[in-house]
């Protein structure tokens, strides 16, 4: 079976040994709630080398920034801080003409203590590749903090899953 867009992205990040977590709708689906999402939200650990590795890996799939700035600028902490402060940037969006239906959003700030959440993260084995998603309890914290209507719906679904799979939610 051919690799899906998401598997190709995960493979590229895995080959480059990027430390990242899938959050957002894709993480919700992987935790067991079927809901639609078109984009892939990633929390990449914001160490310069790690960010550069992520950007280079995604570049091999044709990903480039939505805003008219060089991709590498995102690896610069002071540049990111300026975008967050002056333009209210939350995510840095990337798109690829080769994978046009899968836009990638990179969080401009780590929305949690990355190392702690990464240590508890779930390793998702996809057969030919793998990815990492926050543990159910950590994803719930993130979703409750986001507070949009869709997040509230996700929280309701994830809480129901947590009630059925107490080991995962611990």
């Amino acid at each position: 079976m051919p690799e899906s867009d998401l598997e190709r992205i995960f493979s590229a990040l895995q080959r480059a040994r990027v430390r990242y977590l899938v959050v957002g709708g894709v993480a919700v689906v992987l935790h067991g709630h079927p809901r639609f999402t078109a984009d892939l939200d990633l929390v990449v650990q914001l160490e310069p080398d790690n960010v550069l590795a992520a950007l280079e890996a995604l570049e091999t799939l044709g990903y480039r920034p939505r805003p008219p700035v060089p991709a590498r600028a995102f690896a610069d902490a002071s540049q990111r801080a300026a975008w967050v402060r002056d333009q209210g940037l939350i995510v840095f969006s990337l798109w690829s003409p080769r994978l046009p239906t899968t836009e990638i959003d990179l969080f401009a700030e780590e929305p949690f203590a990355f190392d702690e959440v990464y240590a508890r993260a779930l390793h998702v084995d996809l057969g030919t590749t793998a990815t990492t998603i926050p543990a159910l309890a950590d994803l719930l914290v993130l979703k409750r903090a986001a507070g949009r209507p869709r997040d509230a719906e996700d929280v309701r679904a994830l809480e129901a899953i947590a009630a059925e799979t107490p080991d995962d939610a611990a």
Partner: peptide
């Protein structure tokens, strides 16, 4: 919910990819 939780991670991911293609 139980039926969904019985799927493998890859099956869940492929469902999403199919949904995206269908939407397109």
């Amino acid at each position: 919910r139980r039926a969904w939780l019985a799927l493998s991670f890859r099956e869940r991911l492929l469902w999403l990819e199919q949904a995206k293609r269908f939407r397109q």
